[in-house]
């Protein structure tokens, strides 16, 4: 009898262990926060990296956990960016929401970006569900191209290819204006990224997250144990779109600008590559990948832009052919090799 109880205790512990904070995670966030003091001259770049990381994190939710290959996450990023930019542009001096929240409030802009991106994500998710990987690629890419065309063509709304000027977000929490040194922007991006990360972490470690991982591994079996597979995929696709929308909104607010470039194919492709660099399915892959990607870009792109694209292509080929699971995958394999498992974990 006591034997069974021991089994149960062990099983509960091993299930809950998946979601427990470990010291490398704490260290990661501590280092990220301390960069504010360590490299005060690069705060703008760091904010941009965190925003890219959040976009890559949103792809991780659909690709790394639910197994949907997407080439169009930039669509939601762009929608979030334009929504927040328009709110900041036209909200300046307009009547405040509920009498006290200015329409151009940054946090309200994030909510707006998330909602618009989420609505489009929800609407298009039904197309994404249909068919094979190929149709998914086509639909996600197609949606992104449509949004890009709209950003270019709806000149009266978006400013066309010149982009949207005069984006003036209100001070953060009514107190702090986005400054030239990017101090407020860094803290803003850091806090929002951390909060969104916590949400994502909670999602993937919950029963809902388990069901996504199950669908990725075997959707036939998932269906035959009674799981509403399509509803789960719609949900995660919509949530991921909202994440991307928040990232886009943050970029528009901190750079006080929105342009079709924020929706362009390279935005979706870069974010996907960032995730693959870092490793999909770990949540941290996008964040680690964003750092490496931007450092590489600064180094190689400094020589010539073509040079950067060429080596990016080469790195991709090498990654696919020789390195499984990105940087975090390498680290995990290394850990398993040098510190063999002690039973669970």
């Amino acid at each position: 009898m006591s034997d069974i109880d021991a089994d149960k205790v062990r099983a509960r512990a091993s299930l809950l262990a998946e979601g427990r904070w470990r010291w490398p995670e704490v260290l990661f966030w501590a280092v990220a926060a301390s960069l504010f003091f360590l490299v005060p001259t690069k705060l703008t770049l760091l904010s941009e990296i965190m925003i890219l990381g959040l976009l890559a994190l949103s792809i991780d939710l659909v690709l790394g956990f639910a197994g949907i290959v997407t080439l169009g996450q930039g669509a939601f990023f762009g929608l979030g960016a334009y929504t927040a930019a328009l709110m900041a542009k036209h909200g300046y001096g307009a009547a405040p929401l509920l009498g006290f929240i200015p329409i151009n409030d940054p946090l309200l802009g994030l909510v707006g970006g998330a909602i618009v991106a989420g609505i489009v994500g929800f609407a298009t998710s039904f197309l994404v569900l249909r068919g094979s990987d190929l149709t998914r690629l086509m639909v996600t890419l197609g949606v992104a191209l449509i949004v890009e065309e709209l950003a270019n063509k709806l000149k009266w709304l978006t400013g066309g290819s010149d982009g949207l000027q005069g984006v003036l977000p209100a001070p953060l929490l009514g107190k702090w204006d986005f400054d030239l040194y990017g101090q407020v922007a860094f803290i803003y991006a850091f806090v929002i990224l951390f909060v969104m990360f916590l949400v994502a972490r909670q999602l993937v470690n919950s029963q809902f997250g388990m069901s996504l991982k199950a669908i990725k591994q075997n959707s036939l079996r998932s269906r035959t144990i009674g799981m509403p597979v399509n509803a789960r995929l719609v949900t995660v696709y919509t949530i991921a779109a909202m994440f991307a929308g928040v990232a886009g909104a943050m970029l528009a607010q901190t750079t006080q600008f929105a342009s079709p470039d924020m929706v362009a194919f390279h935005r979706s492709a870069d974010a996907l590559l960032i995730l693959i660099f870092g490793g999909a399915g770990y949540l941290y892959g996008g964040l680690v990948g964003a750092v490496v990607f931007r450092v590489m870009q600064d180094f190689l792109g400094g020589i010539t832009p073509q040079y950067w694209q060429f080596w990016l292509g080469v790195v991709l080929l090498l990654l696919v052919l020789f390195v499984r699971g990105g940087i975090l995958g390498l680290l995990r394999n290394g850990r398993d090799k040098f510190f063999p498992k002690s039973g669970k974990d």
Binding site: I276, Q309, V315
Partner: peptide, 19 residues
């Protein structure tokens, strides 16, 4: 390999050819 790998691989080739 998986479709994802094929997609990444061919995007890599595209980048190389474009550059």
């Amino acid at each position: 390999k998986s479709h994802l790998d094929q997609v990444l691989f061919s995007i890599g080739l595209i980048f190389i050819s474009i550059a």
